[in-house]
Design a binder for these strands. Structure first.
Lengths: 206, 206
DNA sequence: GCAGTTGCTGACCGATCGGTCAATTACCGT
DNA sequence: ACGGTAATTGACCGATCGGTCAGCAACTGC
């Protein structure tokens, strides 16, 4: 047997390192995380980290690229589509799924997008977020509408990784809580991004 | 004339340093900001910074303490009060004023509260936020209600300092935009924290 | 058996980190 | 004129930073 087929074998070293690095970047911050820390947590030497990734910045790039790529993908799908209400709803759900699946990545470039703006992948992320803002808020949108978008985005990124979590852990990647989180997130974000007027909320939701 | 009375004289050095440090901490992060950077921007030497503040952490403490103190103050005022709707509304407006006035401080310990949790002043901030969460969300609150609180908090902290600002600068401390921001923020946060049912919003607000 | 590749490591490098210290300057009341 | 205090600084310290490099196993194809 040349390679272990399905028995949950040791993941590829570069994947382990990316996972560890992502967690550290999200919690300690990029500049607050040293290559030595990543190596220690992952059980490698610092040299090994730099063998798999050309630099600390390249490691950040590798870690964030999948999330930002998919983000751009679902955003483009929505923009190219006719802007029906159904398409908007589909995008919103895809966006929430993205938030849940890539919560650490999102948190990383939401909360550090300013300080890391000269890192190419983060610049792409910022540009994509700006595109989404333009797509969500029509050019003549009010200050309040823009505020709503920012709060939905930053709030989701913050809450999904807040470790204190105000009572019960939603940061643990427990799939069971995620299925509880998803509809609530869709509801809240939909409410934030929709012009308030008369939201038909069935009284049963409370 | 022993001291310049009102002519906008040079601010006290320690105040200048605090202002510069706060801006750097909020934008580059605490660990991403070096004492040398602060000294350079403020026009002092690194030694001078350490003359006015015993350590980098003491500087962070001095910078954040006023905001967290006032935060605790308005929260206690609300909690001790009978929980009438009027008191809740008053707290909410005081809270929004606090967000606007101390936006950089809030952003700092919201987005770095995890990595700096062993810094005393940040620990106090985290504890106060937790107290507010318990005050806002009754113990039996649903996951969605807790989500709403987190999104309101993290979203406001993020949006008020997001430099991209999705179209128009709300990060510039322009008092004119602040008076435009305040009612919108009160409205959105009130909407997020209020159990949805029937929010009496006069139609004129839109 | 042996060259080549892959994965990994310790030793090392210059730069920068937060922080200490002694010296210097400026200003104060007397 | 003078002693004392406050403010500021450069020189310096050990530690750690991101990164380079040569070497060492282990496995490969031949």
């Amino acid at each position: 047997m040349p390679a272990e087929p399905s028995v949950s074998a040791r993941a590829k070293p570069s994947d382990e390192l990316q996972a560890v690095a992502l967690e550290q970047f999200a919690t300690r911050g990029f500049s607050g995380t040293s290559l030595q820390q990543i190596a220690d947590v992952a059980g490698y030497s610092k040299s090994s980290v730099l063998y798999h990734f050309a630099s600390k910045e390249a490691l950040l790039d590798a870690v964030l690229t999948p999330a930002i790529d998919e983000f751009g993908r679902i955003l483009d799908a929505w923009i190219s589509d006719a802007s029906t209400d159904a398409a908007r709803q589909a995008f919103l759900e895809a966006f929430v799924d993205l938030l849940l699946r890539y919560r650490l990545e999102v948190h990383t470039f939401i909360s550090q997008g300013q300080s890391l703006e000269d890192v190419p992948v983060v610049a792409r992320a910022n540009a994509t977020i700006l595109r989404m803002a333009e797509a969500v808020c029509p050019p003549e949108a009010s200050v309040e509408d823009r505020l709503r978008f920012g709060i939905a985005l930053g709030g989701a990124a913050y809450t999904l990784t807040a470790d204190l979590t105000f009572g019960s852990g939603m940061t643990t990647d427990d799939a069971a809580t995620d299925v509880e989180l998803r509809p609530a997130l869709v509801h809240i974000i939909s409410e934030l991004l929709s012009p308030v007027p008369a939201h038909a909320v069935p009284a049963s939701t409370r």
